[in-house]
Every structure is written in C-alpha cells, then in structure tokens.
Design a protein around this nucleic acid. Sequence first.
RNA 1: UGAAAUAUAGCUUAAUGGUAAAGCGUUAAAUUUUGACUUUAAACAUGAAGGUUCAAUUCCUUCUAUUUCAACCA
Length: 551
Amino acid sequence: MSEEKSNNFIEEIVEQDLKEGKYKRILTRFPPEPNGYLHIGHAKSICLNFGLTMKYNGDTNLRFDDTNPVTEDTEYVESIKEDIRWLGFSWINEFYASDYFERLHEFAIELIKKGLAYVDDSTSEQIALEKGSHTTPGIENKYRSRSVEENLQLFAGMKNGQFKEGEKVLRAKINMASTNMHMRDPVMYRIKYAYHHRTGDKWCIYPLYDFAHGQSDSIEKITHSVCTLEFVPHRELYDWYIKELGIFPSHQYEFARLNMTYTVMSKRKLLQLVNEQFVSGWDDPRMPTISGLRRKGYTPSSIRLFCEKIGIARRDNLIDISLLEFCIREELNTTANRRMAVINPVKLIIENYEDGRSERVTLENLPNEPENVREVSFGREIYIEREDFMEIPVKKWFRLAPGQMVRLKGAYIIKCERIEKDQSGEVSCIYCSYFPESKSGHDTSNMKVKGVIHWVHALDCVPAEFRLYSHLFKSENPALESGDFKDDINPDSLIVKRGVIENGMKTSPYGNHFQFLRNGYFCVDKDSKAENLVFNRTVGLKDSFVPQKKN
RNA sequence: UGAAAUAUAGCUUAAUGGUAAAGCGUUAAAUUUUGACUUUAAACAUGAAGGUUCAAUUCCUUCUAUUUCAACCA
C-alpha cells in the first residue's frame, strides 16, 4: 500500500547504470571536511548518499576531506561521526583523504613525468593575475616550460622542506586559455608547514581539493560521486586528472544544495555565530546544525522525512522552514506524551472549592490511547496561562473573561467571578467558582463550554525554565541582505520563561519529548537538573485562532 | 564583453507531444475536554517570443531572469 514515489534524477542515473550493467554494485561516499559541524544541508547529502545505496543495495564510505591542516580538527571528526550515526546511517569504511597522501604524491610525480605538471615559483598574486578573467584568457609564464627533470627535482625539494611556504607550488599544465577557469593550470600542491590532525608533521606539502577528491573517489572505486552544484565547473578537472592518470573512472553528479528560510547555511557564517557568541555553541538549538536540531528536540526520523520531502533536483531552492516544522510535529503528535505546563502563570482561586481539599484527576498521556493515563492533583488554587484570560475579550473568545466560563482540562467547568490587580495594573489573581457536577468523566451538569484550558495545581507543581526559540534571523533569506548578515539576527530568537509544570516531571532525562498541552512540543535540555528543570521548545502547535477586533 | 547550470501554484517536488499531480503553506467549514489532531472543501502554476506539429509545458531557436565560476579553501 506504499504510495508511488517517483525517482529523482540521480536515482534515474543509477537505475540506468545498473540496468545496463555498467556497475554490478554501486558505491557512494559522504565527504565532509572536518572543519565545522554538520548542518541540515549536510543531512540532505547524507540522506541522498546513504539512501541511494540502501535503495540499490550498495555501500557508502565516510571520507574526511582533510587536505587543509590549518582549519581541520579531530573535534569536528568526532562530531561528524556522531551526527551521521544519530541520523541513522552507517558507513562501510571510514577513510581520510590524508590516507592517500602517499598515493597522491605518486600521482603528482606521474603527471610531472608525463609533462603535465610543473613547479611554479610565482607568488599567488602573480598566479591570480596571469589566470586572466572570465573574458580574457590567461597567460603562460616562464616556469611552465621547465624540464621534467627540473620539475621532479624542485617538487622533491618542496616535499623535503627546502622551500618556504608560498615560495613554490605544483601546477597542472592544462590550458591557460580555457573558458573554464579551473582548467587554467590549477594548483595541485602547496607548501604548508602545518601540523595535520592525522599525519602530524610528516608532510609539508598538501594537495588541494581538486587534486585529492577525484583521485580519492577513484582509489575507493566510488561509482557515483554526488556533490552540490558549485562543483559543476570542477567536473572537467575531475575527469581530466582521472583520464591522465588512467585510474578508475568515478563520475561526479551534482544537485542543488539546500537553502532554508530564516537561517544561514554557510559553514563560515555558522562558525562566526559561534565564535562571536551570537549563539551558545554549535549545538545551540537555534542553529541549523544537526546537533542544534537534536538539542532542540528534532528526531532523526523527522529530519529524514524532511530530506525525503524536499527532494533532489538541480534548481536553486529556498525551502520554507515550516516544512521542517511540519515534519517534527507530525511525528511528535503521535509519540510525545502530553503534560500540562504553565509557561506564563497567573494565580486562579476557586472560591467555592473547599480550602485544604485536593483530588486526583485523570488525564490522557496520548490521545487515542484511552488506557494510557496518569493522575494529576487538583485543588482550590491553580495556575493558568496569563494569555488565557482577557479582561475585555475579543470576539469569539472561548477562554476566560469576567463572567465567562471555561473547562479546566480533565477537571471542572469554572466561571470567572472577579479579578484582582496589582499596583501596576496587571492581573494578580482570578477568582472563580466551579460546578461540582461538571467533573470530567462524570459530567452531569449538561453545561456546554467552548473553551478548554490547561492548568497546574499550585500546591503540587514544580517550577521550570522554558526556553522558547524562534527564527534566528528576521528576514527570510539573510544571505541576500546587504551588509553584515549578523545585523539581521532576531533579538527575540530565544525567550526564557520561568513557569510551573505538573509534578512528576523531575526525573525526565535529557532528550525526552513532550507535548505541553496547547503550548507546543518540548524536550528536556541537557542543562536540566532536578533543582532546575529546563525545557526547550522544539516547535509550537499550530494555532488557527486569530484574534478579531474587540467587540 | 565569457562560460556553465537552472526556470511548473506562495514554497518544494512530479508528470506528459493530447484533461498539468502531490506534499507543505493559505482560506473556509465540520468535529473536538488541546482554537491541536482528524475530516471536507476552496484558491493558486508550466518565465517571454518565435518555430516544428492536427496538437508543445514537453522538441528546436532566440530572449529574459536567477545561480555559480578568476582561494596556495573545500
């Protein structure tokens, strides 16, 4: 009974290749650079790469693209592995581009010997200048015609530390007039006296992305090397190295990267938000990182569902963040236990309810599971949400207002008799009467009320901190804003509230998900302690109530 | 003044040389002890111009718009 889902264009290619017998088995790879945390855009790529080989019975390698020792770190390696596992995927091999430094070095020598690579003594500025522009071809410099022997000798010198950083590079000899800038004698190796997180001080020359990625794919015999659209112009070079080296022909296919409203996806910008402390860290719940979403209360399956829903194509896109929110609501609606929490409390006293009396009322943990219940304490003094009372109600106001009646969820119908205000004019207490025969489950009152509100017994509750998150940025596409993207940060992206919650929540461990009735889905934050419960709002409930103008 | 990629409802993704489909979002209504969920309904699309054709969103040409490309980053 599964609904037909059409293949995306990469699945079409894979099916075709399999059908034609081009490959017996496919192999993909996920190639992160360990210089930052994974974000929801990476999740799209992960779901694609691993999803492809799950669907077509192949394997996926995890390969760290660690060719730039100055920005990379093992902290990132560990977080990346954790995030992929958490998303529910497992790789068959864990590889590192640095595993291939020896091989890559041999490849470079091979190209020098073929007369296809040369050592250039120019400065980076000179090289950039000689590259020309989109409209003018580049020019060939004097080092381009060095002999094979000289190149071999100089490259050995580079490797052996005879030159300073920036003094020399190894370049491929391709075509300085190509319309593709990447083919104008791209740099293959540069000198860097930097400690590498895996190879230590063994090397002082490091290959660039283009000279490492395709060959790494080839060494691993990757059949389908999937990446994002910015790499389209690199494909010609990717193919060139593979062809000239005569190695296994991996193929590159590109899809459009994910963009999402009200957030940024560039690692550079995310790093800036962390470093400049606009957020508390990579796992701040406002970050679009996997770890941030996890802390905010997103589940692996909700993220996978999201990735499935956004699809794979080649056109630029800006996904509405409401789709992500839909995916987590849909799941949590069926799995998250209901609890009552009052985030912005105001006291309510039921004057005709005997002082000192209390009783237990029964509430469902999950709708549609009538057996699955808990008991909650009820009494004369309770807290309700400040927003559930309006002194001068708007039209179609179903909640509490002077003289108006409402049901307390799972308990009685009450009627607002009068209110009390403090010096500042704010409501400090709401006085009500209740109808004893209206008790939930035993209601003989025959009364009908439109509104049902949640509440917490004042004598049997615990204080709690609620962290209410909203969009990190004010505009839909912060990347498009001119000037500093940080000026667009939403000052209200985190609002901390102190309220109360029904008793019995003290021992909920980190990560547990709840629906706080009428307030939204929340999870226990890692900062939560028995003395100070902390809940993160994962996402609010849909709210179709739009206040009309006052009556 | 270059090259490449892309263009289907508000967003995302389908499909087809012959009635353009779905999810999200939006708007109504029903239901409801969560103004949630659920159910029902509604509105909204093939960038433009030519050409081939009985018939073009699909094929061809041109135009326009958007994105990407000149790091010793990936």
